[in-house]
Amino acid sequence: MAYKQKYDKPPITEAVAQLRLSEPLDDTSFDRVKSALRDRHNSVEPIHQFTTQYDLQNTSVSNEHEEIGCKFVSNDGAENVTVTKSEITPSRLAPYPGWERFSKMANSYFDLWNDASETSPNINRIGLRYINRIDIPYRGNPNLRIEDYFSVSVNMPDPEGTIYDYLIRMVVPTSKKSFKAIIHAGSVKPHLVGHGSFLLDIDIFCTPFNGDYSDLNDTLDVMRGLKNEQFESFITDKTRELFT
């Protein structure tokens, strides 16, 4: 199925790529990664993990806290990369600069991560996630029919029943066997006056990843195609009109 892939006003609020390792980086490699990223960013935020364990047999609770990584943010706040010893997650907020620039940005972080590692990282999972917020004008009618804009909807006992809020999560196959998609579709807080806002969050992932680092670029290209297929399959022409 052929789709128009480039919209004038894409509803992408955030694009995220992620690599996850089967074995975490050692301390020396991780310090090298952080140091290299620090050179490229002014703003660094530590990431803390708080763990609470409830032991139901002995009715005890224990708490732990550790700094597990950092988030580096660009000056315009639009580009950031989060790193822990086992994950690297570059992300780009709107305005989406297009696939060429986004993948170049993500790959530059992955390369930096790869170069700083003592040994070539053993990739366990690759993820490519696009979070879309679709703002739909009420145009005088405060009741939006979900099925006019999305191909996935909610079946109510009363077909004309009102829904104030909904969220659907599904894991679905894609047209390539090794990749699956996690989809979140639902309503969100309206961002504009006189509009309803809807989430279409598409997370394409591959795990376990059987290739090596040199296959990464091609794999991301394939995932981007799958993401587009999923996106187009979940929206209608009425929705497409909103992006042009």
Binding site: E45, P46, I47, H48, Q49, F50, T51, T52, Q53, Y54, D55, L56, Q57, I68, G69, K71, T82, T89, S91
Partner: peptide
């Protein structure tokens, strides 16, 4: 046993 992890950030 239930373990909850809360991570600041992203």
């Amino acid at each position: 046993r239930i373990v909850c992890r809360f991570t600041e950030g992203h």
